[in-house]
Measured scan of single mutants.
Amino acid sequence: EFTQISGYVNAFGSQRGSVLTVKVENDEGWTLVEEDFDRADYGSDPEFVAEVSSYLKRNGGIKDLTKVL
């Protein structure tokens, strides 16, 4: 089950073990991109978060400006 990723309007994530599946949706709710990120592939949590965040930004993730990150 996908849940909204904090700080984004149209990005959602689903966690299974160490694998986080993220997706970005358009205004109609269609999935634009979907990608798996395995936490085990990264040396640290900040590196993992930075990679996921960068992916979302590159692929149309819209920041939720009503929330302070």
Rank of each mutant, 00 (worst) to 15 (best):
L56V: 06
Y8C: 10
L32I: 13
E1G: 13
K57L: 12
A50D: 09
L20V: 06
A11E: 00
R58M: 12
F2I: 05
P46F: 15
G13L: 09
V68P: 11
T21K: 09
F2V: 05
T3G: 06
L65W: 12
I62S: 04
S54R: 12
L56P: 06
R58T: 09
Q15M: 14
S54I: 08
F12W: 11
E35F: 13
D45S: 06
S14W: 14
V33S: 12
A50Y: 09
V19N: 01
T21W: 05
N59I: 08
K63H: 08
E34H: 09
G29D: 03
A11D: 02
D27P: 11
S53R: 14
D27M: 11
F12N: 01
G43V: 08
G13H: 08
V19Q: 03
G13F: 14
K67R: 09
F48A: 00
A50W: 08
W30D: 14
S14H: 09
L56S: 00
S54Y: 09
Q15S: 09
D45V: 08
I5T: 04
I5K: 05
G61I: 06
K57T: 13
W30F: 13
G43F: 08
G43Q: 11
E25W: 10
T66P: 07
S44H: 01
A11T: 03
E47P: 01
S18W: 05
D36Y: 10
K23C: 09
L56N: 00
V19M: 04
R16C: 13
T21Y: 06
L32G: 03
S18M: 06
E35T: 12
V24K: 00
V68L: 11
Y8M: 05
G43T: 09
E47S: 04
Q15V: 14
T21F: 04
E35D: 07
I62R: 09
T3H: 12
D36G: 06
S53L: 14
S6V: 12
S53M: 15
A50T: 07
E35W: 12
N26G: 07
Y55F: 15
N26C: 09
W30V: 14
D45K: 04
E35S: 10
T31V: 12
T3I: 12
A11G: 03
V52F: 02
R16D: 04
D27Q: 11
Y8D: 03
P46Y: 15
Q15H: 08
R58Q: 10
L56Q: 00
Y55R: 04
A40T: 08
E47W: 03
V33Y: 14
N10E: 02
F12S: 05
I62L: 10
S18P: 03
Q15G: 05
A50N: 10
V24E: 01
D41R: 09
S14L: 13
L69Q: 14
D36R: 13
A40F: 07
L20H: 02
L56D: 02
V33G: 08
Y8K: 06
V9T: 11
I62Y: 07
E25Q: 15
G13V: 12
R58A: 12
N26Q: 05
G29K: 04
D41T: 07
A50V: 06
S14R: 15
L65S: 10
K57I: 10
V68E: 14
R58G: 07
G43H: 09
A40L: 11
S44F: 02
T3A: 08
G13W: 15
S18Y: 02
V52Y: 05
N10F: 04
E51H: 12
E47V: 05
K63P: 12
E35K: 15
K67T: 11
L56Y: 00
W30N: 11
L69P: 13
V33K: 07
F48G: 00
S53Y: 14
D38Q: 02
S18T: 12
F37A: 00
F48M: 05
W30M: 14
D41I: 07
S14E: 05
L32T: 08
K57Y: 10
S53W: 11
R16V: 08
K67L: 12
A40M: 09
V19G: 01
Q15T: 12
S6N: 13
E25H: 10
S44C: 06
A11K: 01
Y8L: 04
V9G: 04
S6P: 14
G43M: 11
T31H: 03
T3W: 13
A50F: 09
S44M: 01
E28A: 10
E25F: 14
Q4H: 08
D36L: 10
G17V: 04
S44T: 08
Y8V: 06
K57D: 15
R39Y: 06
D38M: 02
G17F: 04
Y55P: 02
D38C: 06
E51K: 09
P46I: 14
I5L: 10
Y42L: 01
Y8I: 05
G61E: 01
K57F: 10
W30T: 14
L65P: 13
P46D: 15
E35I: 12
Y8P: 04
E1M: 11
V49I: 13
L69T: 13
V68H: 11
D41K: 11
T3D: 06
K23F: 07
D64N: 07
D41C: 12
E51M: 12
V33M: 09
S18N: 07
E28L: 13
V9N: 06
G61R: 03
E47T: 02
T3C: 15
E35L: 09
E25A: 11
V19E: 01
F12R: 04
D41P: 01
T31L: 09
Y8A: 05
V52K: 02
K67Q: 13
G60P: 00
E28D: 11
V22H: 00
V33W: 14
V49Y: 15
N59P: 00
G7Y: 05
P46W: 15
V24C: 04
F37R: 01
G17A: 02
N10D: 01
Y8R: 06
K57S: 14
A11L: 02
W30I: 15
V52Q: 01
F12T: 04
G7W: 05
G29R: 04
S54M: 10
Q4V: 11
Y8F: 11
E51R: 09
T21M: 04
E47K: 02
G60D: 01
V33P: 02
Y42M: 01
V49P: 00
V22D: 00
D36A: 12
V9K: 11
D27W: 09
G60T: 03
V33F: 12
K63F: 13
F37Y: 01
I5Y: 06
G43N: 12
Q4M: 09
E34S: 11
F48W: 07
K67A: 10
A40C: 15
A11W: 04
S53A: 13
D27N: 11
E34T: 13
V22P: 00
S53G: 09
N10I: 05
S18I: 04
V24G: 00
T66S: 11
N10H: 07
F12L: 04
W30H: 13
A11M: 02
E51A: 15
L32Y: 07
I5P: 04
D45W: 15
G61N: 02
G60I: 02
W30K: 12
N10Y: 05
D27S: 12
L32K: 05
S14P: 02
S6Y: 13
G29W: 04
D41Q: 09
N26A: 06
D27Y: 10
E28T: 08
T21P: 00
V68S: 13
F2E: 04
D38N: 08
L69S: 14
S54Q: 11
K63I: 14
T3P: 06
G29N: 04
V49Q: 13
F48P: 00
L20S: 01
